[in-house]
Amino acid sequence: MTLQPATAAFYYMAVASVASALLAVTRRNPVHGMLWVLALFLHVAGIFLLLGAEFLAAVQVIVYAGAILIFYLIVVMLLDLPGEEARARFGKHWPFAAAIGISFTALAWLALTETFEPAGDEAVSAVARASSEYEGSVADVGMALFGPFALPFEIASLVLLAAIVGAVVVARKRTTEP
């Protein structure tokens, strides 16, 4: 079996995203960590593109890499953290954290091999046929978003409004003592 270019691109992006996520959580300097998270988000956007989710890839680049991450970087630079370089990189309990992360991943892999290995079943092959013919389109997402998901969509805008007001209220400087 020859390696298709799209499959090779997927495996490159998978390896690059895992590597940049690992670097992001282990760098001592928060700004370096942020830049590795930026690399992670862009590679995940590439995976979205390969999986036929063009709209989500654009949203990932615009909202995650463009808005959320820049917001984090602005806060890091605003706070001016001189002691961060000298501080220990992890808490003392980091082996436990590593054990929990690894065991979560191992459990997910075990569940995965249980779920997706038995091939040849009639239903499974029907699903595989449907997904090989399926080309995701932005129109499908739009029809779903403004059809059955119209109410959750409006509620999401309400959540964002509450978050804007909440962030302003929490971060505002108190000028008068209550």
């Binding site: 997927f10 808490g91 954290a97 991943t105 997910a108």
Partner: peptide
């Protein structure tokens, strides 16, 4: 489909595990 769905879910599990590790191990709130 370019890769089996299991590979995508496995990649997702690995990234989630890295996130769990980072959340529990780092002592910087950002």
């Amino acid at each position: 489909m370019i890769v089996p769905v299991g590979v995508i879910i496995g990649l997702s599990a690995v990234l989630f595990g890295i996130g769990v590790f980072g959340f529990l191990a780092r002592r910087n709130i950002i």
